[in-house]
Nucleic acid binder design. Structure first.
Lengths: 187, 187
DNA sequence: TTTATTTATTGACATTTATCACTTAAATGA
DNA sequence: TCATTTAAGTGATAAATGTCAATAAATAAA
């Protein structure tokens, strides 16, 4: 929980009162590899924080699984469209390693937003932060060729390659495993 | 200005007091076709609302212009990464038609956030709304082939094709003009 | 209106990436 | 540990899309 509050306090001032209001609403869970925290077709009712471990969000395209995102230590995550629009999720979120998660329900989050100005500042910054990540991803996918995307990932997230089967990384980058493998072989 | 407040009031309650606080900070401008409202390399210091007209955000890739987004009546827009991260914009925003815009400065916006809980609710919803649009776009680009992307646009934004040179739409969809033209010819 | 410029279309060909088939390697579970 | 499953690598070929070049059409400017 310390890591969580450390992160939040970097986004804006956070009084002791707010801290305890948040803490009172947090829940904790340990999950095993391969367990899901959200299944396609369900509404994402929780905002999660990764204390430990690594998870993967994916959706179906034809018969294949396309990885939409990886979440790891100190990341917050939701299924964005499902959480904000309150509609069924197109994606499933599954643990790739044993994980420790902290989470808060949508309703509790809304309560905090409705009552605390401080919390709004923090929540807004967090939303902006992840919105920026989404835009960056959009830019990367559009701007770069397959080779450039692979290079970018290898330089910026070298750890990922050691923690995740490559086929998931390939689909995250929008290339087939074969192409990913061939591009890697160039180095 | 009516359209703007109508839109905002759909996102959350908005008192007369807040309304006048916002109104006091709004600025208005009419711009001609081809005028830019943001140039690559500058920091995006304003949040815009389109009362009338149509604009295009684009960036350079090698020697080409890639269209990142179109903005039209009732859209809010910023250059996301530049505005939130307070850094130089990689994109330029230019009017494709004569436009009427309403805008507010970054600093004024922050003032409102710092003082009004009501405004935070509205601002957060707005941010969430555009974050969702970004995610949708990401999904569309990744999930669909060129043909599917073109079909999707032709069905969902038929008006755009009549208002904008097709080459910009092609780059928005991430295909060359030639490919776009050939796909269109199938119908 | 006439000319100049920009935009769109089309064909031929090149390149990139995907698909399929197979082999090898690694991880997992009995 | 050994057998089974899953993942990764590689070659041959196919499909999708891009590139270049030429032309036609539309739009803007004189």
């Amino acid at each position: 929980m310390d890591a969580l509050f450390t992160l939040l306090s970097q986004l804006g001032p956070i009084s002791e009162d707010l801290k305890s209001q948040i803490a009172a609403r947090l829940q904790f869970v340990s999950i095993k590899r391969r367990q899901t925290v959200l299944t396609q077709g369900k509404i994402c009712d929780h905002l999660f924080f990764v204390s430990k471990g690594l998870l993967r969000a994916y959706y179906e395209k034809d018969t294949e699984e396309i990885t939409s995102w990886f979440m790891m230590e100190n990341d917050f995550f939701i299924s964005v469209l499902s959480f904000f629009r309150r509609m069924k999720s197109y994606e499933t979120i599954v643990a790739m390693e044993d994980c420790e998660l902290i989470y808060i329900s949508y309703d509790d989050l809304m309560d905090l937003y409705a009552t605390s100005l401080e919390f709004n500042i923090i929540g807004r910054k967090l939303t902006e932060y992840y919105y920026c990540k989404s835009e960056e991803r959009l830019l990367a996918i559009r701007k770069q060729t397959a080779v450039e995307r692979v290079e970018f990932l290898m330089q910026n997230s070298p750890g990922l390659i050691d923690r995740v089967p490559l086929k998931y990384i390939a689909s995250y980058l929008g290339v087939t495993r074969e192409t990913f493998s061939r591009i890697r072989a160039l180095y």
